[in-house]
Each structure stands twice: as structure tokens, then as C-alpha cells.
């Protein structure tokens, strides 16, 4: 099995290994007496164990799931959710940032603009995607596409999955702060519906820069935070090792954030997490997006903008 079990999943991994062993032995067909039955029983036990472990996950365990190497990324969801994706590249000023992808697509026949962070799966792809950490040109590409969406009256659907905006010399030289700030300001005023979903890591300003919208969702095991748990721990606890404590203190999980009223919806993940079943995850996500899009498209532009503004103003004190 190549599911990359996390530490807290060890009992499940052990059980699954046992099942796999039995299954292999059984393939020979020599010891078929009751073995099928055993395997079925163990499978049930494994599912039960998974349910039990996943029913009570801490913020740090959720953080690990949000960063799971097999977790579906934006480009994994696109074929499940949309038809005819035409990827569009470049910020027209400096470069094409591969840590953010975007383009035109159809969602149940409705043309939309899709924008999302993109991480890489293997080493080469990870480097090409800069581990999902955009530079200013990535945010400027996103803004260019959002302006295009407004011009052609296309709803915008974004997917958030980044450790954060890239902290590098070039990124600073080209105005990382300004690029993020400008997106926040412009997204508040775009006259088309915007639906944002955190699919993995919602890392700080680098996440928010494509995260201002009319509806903001989080997948059940995604995280959203002002600083990474490691970053917070190294500043406040003087040790990155205390990341689990920082994750809990900041309340980075979808459940904790929903309770504070900072997001609209939690989208349920399949048993064991999104990486266990991309199809089922995409189906849940699609159902939510579909419902939200139809709600938002029935609003007048004035109401849409007013409600978005009210939503933003409701964060914290009014």
C-alpha cells in the first residue's frame, strides 16, 4: 500500500499490512479455508479503526493531513469538477508563476474562471511549482485572470493550497507585499461571484491573496492560519518543535475556524481523508460549489458586493 500513512495512523497501517499479507497468501489458493472471511472481517475492523481515529483529530494531526503528499491538488480536482479547462499563463509583465494555475473552464455548462495554488508531487514537479509558494507574478497572473472574468461576466472559483507566499529576494524586489495587498483590495470589488475553497494548506497572506470571496469553504482536513504552526512556534515558543502546540493554540482546523464564523462551509472528506478517494472528495466539493454558485448567481451585482463587504466587515469587531 502506498498511502503514506501518517504517525497517528500507525494502527491502521499495521492492520492494512496484515490484510495485504493475507490477501497475498490467499492468492495462491492453497489455504482458502475461511480466509476470505477473515479478510472481510479485518477490512471492517480497519474501517472501524479509521473512523475511530479520525473522529477525534487534533489540530496538528489535521495539519499533517492538509500537507499529506498524496492529497489532491488543484489540477487533480479540475478534471473532476470542470469540462474543457483552458489554462492561461503569465502576468504579462514578468513571468508565468507555476505555483498558481488558472484558466477558463465550464462548470455544469456555466463558463467560469478557475484559479488555484498548485503543488508538485515528485521532486522535479515540486521544484517547478516552487512547493506551491507563489511569487508576485503568480498573484498578478491571478489578478489578471480575475479582471478578465469580471469583463466577461464569469464567476470565479479559487482553490487555496499553499504553505505561504514565497519568502525570497526576487519576490521582495518585485513587490510581494504590493501584489498580495492589491489582490485583497481588488477582490473586494469584483462584480462577479467568487467562491474560495481551502483544499489543503491555507498559509497566511499567500492564501488570502486568492481567498477573498462571497463564500469561503474549507475541506474537512484542511487548515487556515495567520502563520504556519512551525513559524508561530519558533517565535512564541522559541522552537519549531512546538508546532503541534502552536497549531492547537491558533486553532487552524476547519472545525475551529467555522466555530469562529470565519468560513461558510466545511466540506466533508471521505473516510481517512481526501487522498483516500479523489472521486468521492471531488463529488462532495462539486455539490457544494454547485449550490453556492446558483445562490450567488441569483443576486444582483449590488447585493453581491454589499453582502461580500458586510461579510468582510463582520470579521472581528464592527
Amino acid at each position: 500500500m502506498s498511502l503514506n500513512y501518517l504517525d497517528f495512523e500507525k494502527p491502521i497501517a499495521d492492520l492494512e499490512a496484515k490484510i495485504e499479507e493475507l490477501r497475498l497468501v490467499n492468492q495462491g489458493g492453497e489455504f482458502d479455508v475461511g480466509m476470505e472471511e477473515d479478510i472481510t472481517k479485518l477490512r471492517e475492523k480497519s474501517a472501524e479503526l479509521t473512523r475511530k481515529i479520525f473522529a477525534d483529530l487534533g489540530a496538528w494531526q489535521v495539519s499533517q493531513l492538509a500537507r499529506h503528499p498524496m492529497r489532491p491538488y488543484t489540477l487533480d480536482y479540475i478534471p473532476h469538477l470542470f469540462d474543457e479547462f483552458d489554462e492561461l499563463a503569465g502576468d504579462r509583465a514578468f513571468a508565468d508563476d507555476k505555483a498558481i494555475v488558472g484558466g477558463l473552464a465550464e462548470f455544469d455548462g456555466q463558463p467560469v474562471m478557475v484559479i488555484g495554488h498548485q503543488k508538485g508531487r515528485d521532486t522535479h514537479e515540486k521544484i517547478r511549482r516552487n512547493f506551491g509558494m507563489p511569487k508576485p507574478e503568480g498573484y498578478r497572473k491571478a489578478l489578471r485572470l480575475m479582471h478578465m472574468a469580471e469583463r466577461f461576466n464569469l464567476p470565479i472559483i479559487t482553490f487555496i493550497d499553499t504553505p505561504g507566499a514565497y519568502p525570497g529576494v526576487g519576490a521582495e524586489e518585485r513587490g510581494q507585499s504590493e501584489a498580495i495587498a492589491k489582490n485583497l483590495k481588488e477582490m473586494a470589488e469584483l462584480s462577479v461571484p467568487i467562491i474560495c475553497t481551502v483544499i489543503g494548506e491555507g498559509g497566511s497572506g499567500g492564501a488570502l491573496a486568492i481567498g477573498v470571496g462571497d463564500r469561503v469553504n474549507m475541506l474537512q482536513y484542511s487548515t487556515y492560519s495567520v502563520i504556519s504552526p512551525e513559524g508561530c512556534a519558533s517565535i512564541l515558543w522559541k522552537s519549531a518543535e512546538k508546532a503541534p502546540l502552536a497549531a492547537e493554540a491558533m486553532g487552524v482546523s476547519a472545525g475551529q475556524i467555522k466555530e469562529l464564523g470565519l468560513i461558510n462551509n466545511i466540506i466533508e472528506e471521505p473516510l481517512g481523508g481526501a487522498h483516500r478517494n479523489h472521486d468521492a472528495m471531488a463529488a462532495n466539493l462539486k455539490a457544494t460549489l454547485k449550490q453556492q454558485l446558483s445562490q450567488l448567481m441569483s443576486l444582483s451585482k449590488e447585493d453581491l458586493l454589499e453582502q461580500r463587504y458586510e461579510r468582510l466587515m463582520s470579521f472581528g469587531y464592527c
Binding site: 485583497l184 488570502l208 477573498v212 495567520v226 461580500r308 466587515m313 470579521f315
Partner: peptide, 20 residues
Amino acid sequence: ARMQEALFSLMQMAKTSAAL
């Protein structure tokens, strides 16, 4: 952003920018 108010602090970035 102030870490002790966690995501509330992050959201102030969006809030202040929208006002601007």
C-alpha cells in the same frame, strides 16, 4: 499580523483592504 488572534488577525488584511 498578531499571532495571538490567529485567523482573526489575517482577516483584518482583507477587511482593511476592502475598506480602502
